[in-house]
């Protein structure tokens, strides 16, 4: 694996042979950026990995799929009430890393996760940790809306029911209503709670999935490219919703759209071929990246 990484890095460097003019421009820009740029070959994470008041911490996380080393020594903190965006080219491991955070990789055959991931100071791989309440604490929204083939009400009530959060029917109804309200879907569906969730539009389905995740009152919400299957209007609604939800939850969002990352997140992490390259304040990362690979990506040189 290591050797493959070297080859990849070298070819990348070779391929980007710039004209003299471009080189001159680039060196001008670098001069403006106080010459702190890290070269492409150095794969150590640069930027602000740690936060003052972390909700989740990840230390030396490595993920293997069989022989494939998918995540290499990732270290990062996820702060309270912050939105962390994870960006990077396809196959860089950002979704894999996201799925480590609520141990969804447990269900994938041949996947091995090592390193320490904590939630509120507790190791989520610890022996006394049960994955069931853990996943209730860390909700997840998927790339493609995946409402259950049940009614809208039952979709939201599913989590509270299996965790026994509601003692009676009116409790359950209240949970469903507040969850749908938080997800900004209540006004649209309050008259048709008994209709199937699969009959909603794509954007509504995704908000239903968010409501479903909220219903079990998680602390962290993981979103795996939640808008990639949606149109711009539905995307805008989800983004507004993320801004609203930030007040209560920590949110980690994987996205391919750098504009989206810039719009919704406070911090941004850039992954490249399994390495966590750079972490920092979103504005800083996008205007003044410190790693050459980050700059290559956000300026559209590849990815």
């Amino acid at each position: 694996m290591e050797s493959i990484m070297d080859i990849e890095g070298a070819t990348l460097a070779d391929n980007i042979s710039m004209t003299l003019e471009q080189q001159a421009m680039a060196s001008d820009q670098e001069a403006i950026k106080k010459k702190t740029i890290v070269s492409r070959e150095d794969r150590r994470t640069v930027g602000e990995i740690y936060t003052e008041d972390p909700r989740m911490t990840c230390r030396n996380v490595n993920v293997h799929y069989g022989d494939n080393h998918a995540i290499i020594d990732a270290n990062i903190d996820i702060g309270r009430n912050e939105v962390l965006a994870m960006i990077g080219p396809s196959g860089c491991g950002k979704s894999t890393f996201l799925r480590c955070l609520n141990r969804m990789n447990d269900t994938v055959e041949g996947c091995r996760v090592t390193g320490e991931i904590t939630l509120d100071g507790q190791d989520i791989h610890g022996k006394n940790i049960d994955v069931v309440p853990l996943r209730a604490q860390i909700g997840m929204v998927f790339q493609k809306p995946n409402p259950f083939p049940k009614s809208i009400f039952d979709n939201v009530a599913y989590g509270p029911k299996i965790h026994g959060l509601a003692s009676n029917k009116s409790d359950l109804e209240e949970i469903v209503e507040t969850s749908l309200q938080k997800a900004g879907l209540w006004e649209e569906v309050k008259d048709r709670l008994n209709l199937p969730g699969t009959g909603l539009s794509g954007g509504q389905q995704q908000r239903l999935c968010i409501a479903r995740a909220i219903a079990v009152s998680p602390e962290v919400i993981l979103m795996d490219e939640p808008c990639s299957a949606l149109d711009p209007i539905a995307t805008a609604r989800i983004e507004e919703l993320i801004a609203e939800l930030r007040k209560q939850y920590s949110i980690v969002i994987v996205t391919h759209s750098m504009q989206q990352a810039a719009r919704v997140s406070g911090r941004t992490a850039y992954f490249h071929l399994g390495d966590l390259i750079e972490v920092g304040e979103t504005e800083r990362v996008f205007t003044n990246p410190r790693h050459q690979l980050t700059e290559d990506y956000i300026t559209g040189r590849f990815g």
């Binding site: 609520n102 969804m104 269900t107 994955v131 069931v132 309440p133 853990l134 996943r135 209730a136 909700g139 997840m140 998927f142 493609k144 995946n146 409402p147 259950f148 083939p149 599913y158 989590g159 299996i162 965790h163 999935c209 479903r212 995740a213 079990v216």
Partner: peptide, 21 residues
Amino acid sequence: PQSLRDGSYALGATRSETIRN
């Protein structure tokens, strides 16, 4: 589809709950 199972697991459902519901 696997996505339905994933959705259920992500809510903290166990395997048998996922199968049943």
